[in-house]
Design a protein around this nucleic acid. Sequence first.
DNA 1: ACTTGGCACTCGGGAATGCAGAGTGCTAGA
DNA 2: TCTAGCACTCTGCATTCCCGAGTGCCAAGT
Lengths: 335, 335
Amino acid sequence: MVDDRKLAVLRAIVEDYVSTSEPVGSKALVDRHNLGVSPATIRNDMAVLEEQGYITQPHTSAGRVPTDKGYRLFVDKLSQIKPMSSAERRAIETFLAGAVDLDDVVMRTVRLLAQLTRQVAVVQYPTLDASTVRHVEIVPLTDHRVMLVLITNTGRVDQRVVELPDKVDEIRVAHMRAVLNACLDGCRLNKVPDLVADLPERLPEEDRPAAATILSVLLETLVDRHDEKIVFAGAANLAAPDFTVGLREVLEALEEQVVLMRLLGDAPDKAAITVRIGSENPYLQGTSIVAAGYGSGDKQLARLGVLGPTRMDYPVTMGAVRAVARYVSQILAAS
Amino acid sequence: MVDDRKLAVLRAIVEDYVSTSEPVGSKALVDRHNLGVSPATIRNDMAVLEEQGYITQPHTSAGRVPTDKGYRLFVDKLSQIKPMSSAERRAIETFLAGAVDLDDVVMRTVRLLAQLTRQVAVVQYPTLDASTVRHVEIVPLTDHRVMLVLITNTGRVDQRVVELPDKVDEIRVAHMRAVLNACLDGCRLNKVPDLVADLPERLPEEDRPAAATILSVLLETLVDRHDEKIVFAGAANLAAPDFTVGLREVLEALEEQVVLMRLLGDAPDKAAITVRIGSENPYLQGTSIVAAGYGSGDKQLARLGVLGPTRMDYPVTMGAVRAVARYVSQILAAS
DNA sequence: ACTTGGCACTCGGGAATGCAGAGTGCTAGA
DNA sequence: TCTAGCACTCTGCATTCCCGAGTGCCAAGT
């Protein structure tokens, strides 16, 4: 009976604080939630909770506020993800289904997530590592120049202009293209370096310098894209009246790909939703991040999530992130 | 003599206000700038300037602040663009030269501009209208599916997956590709619709449905990209301690492509630098925008600029925008 | 062993007050 | 036409004061 009520009190504190964003006192608690006890009892419980580090008071004689540890307990044990209504799910689905290409999918996803959660949404482009080569195209531009286009099964297209050491004609290019595609078609991007290693040797003598140049650019493309692109949307949601953390820091972090990457984090578990609360974050203490992996089928391609104040509505945010991750996975699998 | 000094006073007010961001009074003026007259005289001049609408006082017995009209006069007649130092120019050049593709050019440009001006930078992707077709590629994916890739001379690549009404094989695709390229190679994108109008008729009967489908997707790609992509960077600079305007509005505008487009404005004159001050802006009164066109050679491809508080250092901002516009034009022309 | 009511205590935040400084407009004189 | 002086106005800042919300603790009740 004892511990049970304390947990209920913690839950109530988190919920109230999230909705009012003001420290919550013992009186207010018993009024709103029908705990069957008096404020004094609650006060005792709160004293214990505070001693254990789950809540704190901003200053003497103010109500209590959850600590990071308190939110953590709340998220882990006291709440469950709130699923989206079916109407919302339908809306998500149709909105995402309208995308025309990968860029569009990512763009729509990030905007949708920002709008749903009223927070800053962050989406990582699908990682190349897990994807496969669908086609490699070599397009002659001039005598000494070709454009190399790499198309992957996620719909992503990378292109580079390559300056060649010697003249090439349409026929030789076509041959190289055929060899290259025969070799690479359908293979995973991270296998590409191994597969092309001995490729020049299989070509006629005179093609080797050109082929070597092209291959080196191809490999460069792969590593360049290795540290992936990340986009965000909904920065305007940061301007909410109550954002205690330095706006400047957050905005700077958002524009710094590397930091953003760290924030999204590595996937400890593929499909699970990860929540990082306040000081658990590598940078940007004072904010929380709710993230999930997404990707077609079983293999996780990348991550997406939202960033918001520590005081956020975790159940619904997690619900939204989960729903969006699922639907975008579905869209990607279909295309 | 009379009017001359009044202008000098206005210039001094603008300069002081820009650097201190506090209303400037008559005493402070004569101290800092060595006008050869007494504060009282300045006060008279200020009274006149105020009556003419160039300056205003936030409240009685405060210093004066320039109005939009005042800034306008300052920009038009009282100041001249401050060129960048050669060291800065070199830095810009080498930074931009490191770009590997169009995306990278745009990304680097926008970041550079944000950093140089310490404001929000906005860059529009080169417009397709003015660019030309370099190559059209049709890549078979399955029996009923091809990928259409459009490469333009600005290095931009658009791709779409096309579902075909009937089966096609490699040979027929190659033929279509050849016809398409023969027809479109090097032509301006805005001419494409005319050029392809009668194209199906020049193909064998059985290819027509497939060709029609492909063409319709091609045209769709063109119009979709017509309203162009715009990117921004440096949002963190909005968090400067003194930003009177609603942060929220600005951030929202930044994420709204259409609004951003309007803000950058149409080019009244191709190479000139346009300055829009405060209420001259279609949206976002209270901010100023300094923009310029850029593009390889004579033809202007798109626009770039920065957005900042009305109280900004126009001469140096204009210098930075001009320099960046020039160098990015140069880079684009070279590639 | 908990729970409850009462009570004294603490502290933040808003309103009211007062003061100093900066800036102006006006007028009379050079 | 400019200058000097003077009275006036207003903001910003610090100080003070007070109210109310909320706590902790203690003693009494179940």
